[in-house]
Design a protein around this nucleic acid. Structure first.
Lengths: 177, 177
DNA sequence: TGCTCCATGTAACACGTTACATGATTGC
DNA sequence: GCAATCATGTAACGTGTTACATGGAGCA
């Protein structure tokens, strides 16, 4: 489990409110770590109780309830501890593989429409990732270490989408038989 | 969620006990859908209550409590319904990507030992998958549709491990700077 | 006035994980 | 006789999901 650490990382990059964190998750970390706003509020409350973060009324709160969360030294230390510990292999839960096995045992199943949908979806994501890559990382100048890391994170997504498309197209041919 | 459907598929291939299902999950479906024996027993109880499966004392039970579960028509129908419905995109939860972002913000983190461990792990899995592929799918004779599907499932794993190794090696070079 | 968005939350539930329990069988 | 394995479960807890609640701000 590492939602709290994902939140800590995001807060370290920029102190902000739970609401903005949830939106930021949707847009960046969310590509490889999804979380709903309820999960985020829950973790913020826990981490504040644990002394990892602190909060106060946000500078731009006006008359709203908006708060701003900041990482405390204990939170920073916890993040370092976690980052340096070995990462468990991620367990893939790919229900489409289950469907393929079901297809092999049942004649009343046709997975081709689903696969075509998946291909379209992967192509959309790929195009999106490539446009980000073009804009941020392929401008010719040498990039600093931090940007190269960001680029590799994006590349992981690109590789995944490309591999998925290739595999799905081959699968489609076999299912046509 | 599709654990019940994974269990149904496995039972459809072969009626068996909860215990053997759990072991079979470890060995085959488990590569892309992990489940503990507690989860499996829980699902078996639910599906029996729902009329999707039935059970009786296993033929080879002897004096043990061993049971055998079989898929009923209602279970088969549910599996067909589920297989034909669109598959949601799988959400990747890759905590290593979170660690990379943390690395960019913190100097006290060194991810290289972890990455080397990951590479070794991916190479082990890849070698294992390739030996299965060699044994079952690369014997030169043309394969029936069902075997070609099984082969593609394995290939997905192979592609994933290969891509992971390549990416991790490139990442290692950047982290060395 | 009514709608959408901002911002934070409560509650209930489903799923996954870990620890523990029970008793029978097999192998040394 | 003892340990490991077979076989099925209970209990407690943590995380993730879904539905709903609340109230202010901005806009037509």
């Amino acid at each position: 489990m590492s939602l709290p650490h994902a939140v800590l990382t995001s807060l370290l990059e920029k102190s902000t409110s739970g609401y903005d964190l949830a939106r930021r998750f949707d847009k960046s970390i969310g590509y490889f770590w999804h979380a709903t706003h309820q999960q985020i509020y829950r973790e913020l409350a826990r981490m504040e109780a644990a002394g990892w973060i602190e909060s106060s009324s946000a500078p731009d709160a006006g008359k709203t309830r908006k708060r701003e969360y900041r990482v405390l030294p204990a939170g920073r230390a916890e993040l370092i501890r976690w980052a340096n510990e070995p990462t468990p292999a991620l367990d893939l839960r790919d229900e489409f593989m289950v469907k393929l096995r079901a297809d092999a045992a049942l004649s009343e199943v046709d997975l081709r429409p689903d696969i075509r949908r998946q291909i379209a979806h992967h192509q959309d994501r790929l195009a999106h990732y490539r446009s980000i890559e073009e804009r941020d990382f392929l401008q010719g100048r040498p990039l600093p270490r931090e940007a190269r890391i960001q680029h590799m994170i994006l590349k992981k997504g690109i590789l995944y989408e490309e591999a998925s498309i290739g595999w799905a197209q081959e699968m489609l041919e076999i299912l046509a038989c």
